[in-house]
């Protein structure tokens, strides 16, 4: 196991280096954070822009910029966002907790929901409940995030005034205690969470159903039934546990993409988050910020993969390292 972990960590490290190198060169292929400086204010002399380029090391040869980037990255320095005029680390860290909170909650709830609904639909294959469930899942899966979010916002936020229309905090409010703050936060996160959870349940219920159906046709399920075990035991102790394996991979990947996975939800509900940040970094050509954001994304994806691998060895007796 130890040998495997070391080998795996080394492979992930190499993957990480390749990814970061690719990001470095891709980001510089067309973008220039100072490109529109003069257009936005024609009074700025070109020399002033050159001074800025020099200050941020953009006048150095590309290979030197690459070396600087790699060295500073391993020193834990992500550079300075020229869009936000703040250290990249600070910009990301203000937003990352919101994204983690939103997506961890939505992934956990939607995974639990999808596992139960998918297994139940598979067990009732061909029955009315399966038909209805499958069609609803297909319908929800086809709904774009932002559309569902906008409908929720319009109906529950505007027409019924049940939930706030924007943000994570009631404007101008001063909380008397933590309880009030948490209550206000939950009130603000209800609609975005509902949007993410409903859509993800739609997506992964079908996946879980398919996996369970496959397992239900296996011999060991027939054996379990022949032993006279209850339906519930057969389904949840035998079928679902086996079907969960591929779900672990899928969930790990979803965790991996969580950093940039909620751009549209963040936009519709005006939530702070790293998804919008990456979008802003790309559109403004701020490759220092882009590198920092992708550093976090890559690390998350790689760690999630590693965790999935380790989980596999625990969940599947056939897998031993």
């Amino acid at each position: 196991m130890k040998a495997y972990l070391v080998k795996r960590a080394l492979s992930l490290f190499i993957t990480f280096l390749v990814v970061m190198s690719a990001i470095f060169f891709l980001a510089r292929s067309g973008a220039d954070p100072f490109a529109e400086f003069i257009e936005s204010d024609p009074r700025i002399p070109p020399e002033a822009v050159e001074r800025l380029r020099h200050r941020f090391g953009l006048d150095k040869p590309l290979w030197q910029q690459y070396l600087d980037f790699m060295v500073s990255m391993f020193q834990g320095e992500f550079g300075y966002s020229v869009t936000f005029r703040r250290p990249v680390f600070d910009v990301i860290m203000v937003r990352l907790p919101w994204t983690l909170m939103l997506l961890t909650t939505s992934i956990v709830i939607s995974t639990i929901g999808a596992v139960f609904l998918g297994a139940y639909a598979a067990w009732n294959r061909g029955k009315k409940i399966d038909l209805i469930g499958t069609n609803i899942s297909l319908f929800v899966r086809a709904l774009p995030h932002f559309w569902l979010g906008m409908v929720f916002l319009l109906v529950f936020g505007y027409y019924y005034r049940l939930f706030p229309l924007y943000g994570v905090k009631t404007s101008g409010i001063e909380y008397a205690n933590v309880f009030e703050q948490v209550k206000d936060l939950l009130w603000h996160l209800t609609l975005p969470l509902a949007t993410l959870i409903i859509r993800q349940i739609g997506m992964y219920t079908l996946y879980m159903r398919g996996e369970t159906l496959e397992v239900l046709g296996e011999d060991f399920i027939t054996t379990a039934k022949a032993k006279g075990l209850s339906d519930r035991t057969v389904l949840f102790r035998h079928a679902v546990r086996t079907s969960l394996l591929p779900m672990v991979t899928v969930t790990a990947l979803r965790f991996g993409f969580m950093v940039n996975g909620a751009i549209l939800t963040e936009t519709v509900f005006s939530l702070p988050g790293t998804g919008r940040l990456i979008y802003q970094a790309i559109t403004s050509g701020d490759f220092f910020l882009l590198q920092g954001a992708f550093f976090i994304t890559s690390i998350t994806v790689l760690i999630a993969n590693l965790v999935a691998d380790i989980l596999y060895s625990h969940l599947d007796p056939r897998v031993r390292y």
Binding site: M150, L153, L154, G157, Y158, L165, Y166, G167, S171, G172, E266, T267, V268, F269, S270, P272, R276
Partner: peptide, 11 residues
Amino acid sequence: PIITSPDAMLL
């Protein structure tokens, strides 16, 4: 307040 969605701002 920071409202990043123009639609939410209009509502």
